[in-house]
């Protein structure tokens, strides 16, 4: 990459963020009402104060844990469904009929129904799982198509042991796409989980804390929590992309 491009890659995002903060600071100064729009500095202070708060860690990891569980289930389901669709066309057709229905489900209605049928914690996990599933399924289909029919035929002709085929040929071929999909999926998952926690009114979690902040008009604290969620989402997505890129680079 050219040196000029490298500088632009850093300078443009940095300037964009600086602009957003400048507009925010200006709007906050005009409003001059911390409850409606706190100043960036107040939010930053609240953000750093979060790290000294035990309650925050508890909520943060509860939400992260729930997201991970929901994600792991949808990830496994998506890959199993994509593999079955590839193997059995009939299953693929059936699943592709259900998928648009799942995609069209109104999230809030589903959460409310699930709260009636299960507990709020379970409701948050299931709804997140359902919303992420169609995206992960598409990603899983792309990942599996990395294992070409040609490679599979070559393995059959040369009687490559099934264990070698799965662990050394198919899995590494699928992994870069899968890891990249996992990064993007986890980030989306986290966002959805927070929304589901707010609607389902779980006993603990970042969504619950946001809801409490809204009730208590603690806007600066609320925005600090949003900061934490955004940064976590970005970190997870970048990590996924980085690992996938490193995997692809290794074989190029």
């Amino acid at each position: 990459m050219k040196k000029g491009n490298k500088i632009l890659n850093i300078a443009v995002p940095a300037l964009t963020i600086a602009c957003i903060f400048a507009i925010w600071a200006f709007a906050a100064a005009v409003t001059d009402e911390e409850i409606i729009l706190p100043r960036p500095l107040s939010v930053l202070k609240e953000f750093f104060a979060l790290f000294a708060d035990g309650e925050f860690y508890l909520s943060y990891f509860v939400t992260l844990g729930r997201s991970a569980i929901a994600f792991a289930i949808s990830f496994a389901l998506a890959f199993a469904a994509a593999a079955l669709s590839r193997r059995y066309a009939l299953f693929g057709r059936a699943f592709n009929t259900v998928l648009p229905l799942v995609r069209a489900l109104p999230t809030v209605a589903v959460v409310l129904l699930l709260v009636l049928w299960t507990t709020s914690r379970v409701a948050a996990v299931i709804v997140t799982m359902l919303v992420v599933l169609p995206t992960l399924y598409t990603n899983a289909e792309n990942a599996l198509s990395a294992v070409s029919r040609e490679t599979a035929e070559m393995c059959r002709v040369y009687r490559v042991p099934k264990k070698t085929r799965f662990f050394k040929i198919y899995l590494p071929a699928v992994l870069p796409n899968a890891v990249s999909a996992a990064g993007a999926g986890l980030s989306l998952n986290l966002k959805l989980m927070v929304a589901a926690e707010v609607i389902a009114a779980t006993a603990r979690g970042l969504g619950t804390e946001l809801n409490l902040d809204k009730i208590n008009f603690e806007t600066a604290h609320m925005l600090a929590l949003v900061f934490a969620i955004v940064l976590t989402g970005i970190a997870v997505e970048l990590a996924g992309r980085g690992i996938a890129r490193a995997m692809v680079k290794r074989y190029a």
């Binding site: 490679t151 070559m154 002709v157 040369y158 490559v160 071929a173």
Partner: peptide, 25 residues
């Protein structure tokens, strides 16, 4: 029992080195 097949395309495993590809057989 064993049949070798030289396909139209090479069908080498892309994430295997030459040595690893040949060690499959």
């Amino acid at each position: 029992e064993r049949i070798g097949y030289i396909f139209q395309s090479d069908r080498l495993v892309p994430h295997f080195t030459v040595e690893q590809n040949l060690c499959l057989v």
